[in-house]
Design a protein around this nucleic acid. Structure first.
Lengths: 216, 216
DNA sequence: AGCAGTTGGTTAGAAGGTATCACGAAGGCG
DNA sequence: CGCCTTCGTGATACCTTCTAACCAACTGCT
């Protein structure tokens, strides 16, 4: 089931319309953010009347959830592709920034302000852990710095459930987490425009933080 | 003008109602985020009918802008109070986390997903630069590490307009920026719930990042 | 081939949101 | 005391999401 092209014409048409809906949804999100996404406006752009969209997505939330899923998949694919090409941590950091700059609102859809009630479906967290696996591979592969065993690394070694059985040493666990938090910190502030008017080049700050992870 | 209590009874009443509106607005934001803020619901809670609120705030956006202003002021006050008590960088880091955990949605109102069209009013950026000034003071006061002069520090030294005439050495500029981006990275991911279910303690990660700034 | 059932589309309408307008009531001030 | 500003109201226009009822068209089975 849900076979891409060998399905019935009906299912193919259905998938096609769903894709067109999502295409216009992404355009709206890129233009005005996810909170401004309007099913009515999408319907008008496609050329059908409002309620017709509910044949394809049960609700506005379900559409957004599907977009989140696609965004996670897109980022995971970008990471996997670069990792398969033998990329190191610095290359992954560059990949992350390129992916985020290509569509800032898509980045914020994953890592921006959460809606208090919203609970992410199980499969998105699964894709997120795939991204983490690629990251852990890269962290474990690179030359591990001979840092003294810090308390945080011991703590992470004690609570490595999130690493999903990955056999990375404690310092690699720590590095993967720092990759995430440090790059997200510099990147999200840049994308949110908090650096505009400050004069310096955000790319250089990002590069410096990347170097702080790869150990120069 | 806008004298707090010595004004006319009319102005006092007006200020009182505005405060009550903002109080309920904060409750709504803490409960469901800023995007779910409803002027109608606030009016109902206060006991007056919808359009009456427009006597106090010209629009929903103006109310939110006022809340952003208050949030910036609150954070700046917390920073200044701790700095006046002789706090170092680590204490400021702790202050930031406490302030954020007290009301995560308030933190996201300042540093969360931006609305593409929205332009922050001039005075909020001024308050933000006051926060940066306190941060630069603390960075310049602490013992500066004898790190080799890195390219990023030279770049920041060349573009120090954002430091607003502050006579901090390049390494302090760099440290202030890292304070911002690294702590925001760890904090925002924690507040957004991206660490839930991962097992480790976000406070320890935050503490470790704080140590990375203070140089242990 | 023809009939039945699923599916996709429509319009109408409920419920709730922002925001404007016109009007009446209440307060402050000369 | 009377005027005038201000406050709150209901009515209204125009959005939004989403449900219900209805109709057309396509699919598949006999």
């Amino acid at each position: 089931m849900s076979n891409p092209d060998a399905a019935t014409p009906r299912e193919r048409y259905r998938a096609q319309v769903r894709e067109e809906i999502k295409k216009h949804a992404w355009e709206q999100i890129a233009a005005a953010g996810a909170s401004a996404l309007s099913l009515n406006a999408i319907a008008k752009q496609i050329g059908m009347s409002g309620p017709a969209l509910y044949r394809y997505f049960a609700s506005r939330d379900e559409l957004i959830t599907e977009l989140i899923r696609d965004a996670y998949r897109s980022l995971a694919d970008a990471f996997r592709a670069r990792a398969a090409a033998g990329a190191d941590l610095a290359a992954l950091a560059h990949t992350l920034r390129e992916w985020a700059l290509a569509d800032p609102q898509r980045y914020f859809l994953l890592y921006g302000t959460p809606v208090p009630g919203y609970q992410a479906p199980e499969d998105t967290t699964r894709i997120a852990s795939q991204i983490m696996a690629v990251l852990l591979d890269a962290c474990a592969a690179g030359p591990l710095p001979d840092t003294p065993p810090s308390p945080i690394q011991a703590h992470l070694d004690d609570h490595r459930a999130w690493a999903d059985q990955h056999p990375a040493p404690p310092s690699a666990l720590h590095r993967a987490l720092l990759f995430w938090t440090r790059l997200h910190g510099a990147l999200s502030l840049e994308l949110a425009g908090h650096f505009t008017g400050m004069g310096f080049d955000p790319a250089r700050l990002y590069a410096a933080e990347t170097e702080s992870l790869t150990g120069r």
